[in-house]
Design a protein around this nucleic acid. Structure first.
Lengths: 113, 113
DNA sequence: TTGACACATTCCCATATGGGTATATGTTTC
DNA sequence: GAAACATATACCCATATGGGAATGTGTCAA
């Protein structure tokens, strides 16, 4: 088998930085495709393709408005990601604290000399 | 260009469910490769390959212990993911509240009839 | 030293990617 | 109806994937 499709779930969809950028733009409110094209400085077909992936995993909804298609954020599918990483929060905080301790020790040694 | 390498960053590394499973096991403490092989019920070469990816993005550290290689979690690279999704938390909560409101309305209508 | 064990690496394959370019579809405006 | 605009889709390409099978490398035990 090859790598899982980008449309498999939010984890895969969001691994692509361009798609994260798109979502970041949509937090500010709805946007038509051309808006996004200008803001992202990316070829229109690429934007459309990324939007399709986001649509397939439910991260955006579309609405027709004349000859525009307006995309809107739906953050719900991000919650599983949040829940998963959140369980590691304590873990990295411990490590950062441990690092701080080491730095403190080094500083103390420095002052002792 | 093709899809970004899995070793590009934590986002890509963690998009693969097997690798999330491995991290989930390592939260409980250090593990040797064969331990993981048994727990995951996955071929040993595959486990080694996944561990390599995790190592390359810094999500695990290795230590030699006799003829075993002991892997240990380092959650720090997950923090950027956490920070990114966290900024959407309000967004999905709003949407869930809106959904609740709709359900309440439906229930109220139900009672009125 | 030889064999058993633990692990990593290599090779093969099918697959889908993201970008580019060209074109199809649908909607306004004239 | 024709032209202009907005968007989606189709096609081509290079690339790396995850799995499988086989093999390499290093360590311990007898």
């Amino acid at each position: 088998m090859a790598r899982a499709a980008t449309t498999t779930d939010a984890f895969n969809a969001v691994a692509e930085p361009r798609r994260r950028q798109i979502l970041d733009l949509l937090v500010g409110g709805e946007r038509a495709v051309n808006d996004l094209v200008d803001l992202l400085d990316l070829a229109q077909p690429l934007v459309s393709k990324h939007l399709r992936v986001l649509r397939e995993v439910g991260l955006v909804d579309v609405r027709d408005s004349g000859r525009h298609r307006v995309y809107r954020l739906n953050a719900a599918p991000l919650k599983p990601i949040h829940d998963w990483v959140k369980s590691y929060e304590r873990s990295w905080e411990e490590r950062f604290r441990a690092l701080d301790d080491v730095l403190e020790e080094l500083k103390a040694e420095e002052n002792d000399r």
